[in-house]
């Protein structure tokens, strides 16, 4: 498997197969084939854009919710996770080691929306023992990208 292609795409999903082919000194057909395969087998899960919504002035609220569950057997955790990730407002669901079981990132338009998700959708699930909701106050960095203005190139050039 070509992890170089993955690393390039992870960094910049907008690179075209033709560009990648040149950068890695590979035939473009091979790059196309590999990307198709990586998509088909689920290694490449998808392509998205990282947006700093704060800069648009559009209100949005994100929160990280710690969820404790009653001990489960077999696919118990999976079932709860599936139930949660089907809600479109849920951005991520992680199974965690340590003091709680699931970490759920949720994005809503308002605090009220998030609160109602927790009280009406999350807490009502049978195996949920408790939840702790932490609202995000400001995003500094997400998915490896810093939420700031692009740096001005101030490099000198006398050499």
């Amino acid at each position: 498997m070509n992890t170089e292609i993955l690393k390039l795409l992870e960094n910049d999903a907008r690179l075209t197969p033709a560009q990648i082919a040149i950068m890695l000194d590979m035939p473009v057909e091979a790059v196309n084939a590999q990307i198709a395969e990586l998509e088909a087998n689920g290694t490449v899960v998808g392509y998205k854009t990282i947006i700093d919504w704060e800069k648009t002035g559009i209100e949005s609220v994100s929160a990280m919710i710690e969820v404790k569950l009653t001990p489960q057997k077999d696919k118990g955790f999976d079932r709860v996770a599936e139930k949660l990730y089907n809600y479109p407002e849920v951005q991520s669901v992680y199974l965690m080691s340590g003091a709680y079981d699931l970490s759920v990132m949720i994005e809503g338009k308002t605090m009220k929306e998030v609160a109602s998700f927790v009280s009406q959708k999350l807490s009502t699930i049978d195996s949920v023992i408790s939840t702790a909701t932490h609202f995000v106050l400001h995003k500094y960095k997400d998915k490896g990208m810093v939420y700031d203005l692009p740096e001005i190139d101030e490099r000198g050039t006398f050499n």
């Binding site: 190139d153 490099r155 000198g156 050039t157 006398f158 050499n159």
Partner: peptide, 22 residues
Amino acid sequence: GIRKFFDLMNTMSDVVGLTVGE
């Protein structure tokens, strides 16, 4: 001679430069 060109470039805006050596 590089400096000369650089100074020129700095008087303009929206220049895409491939000039730096670092």
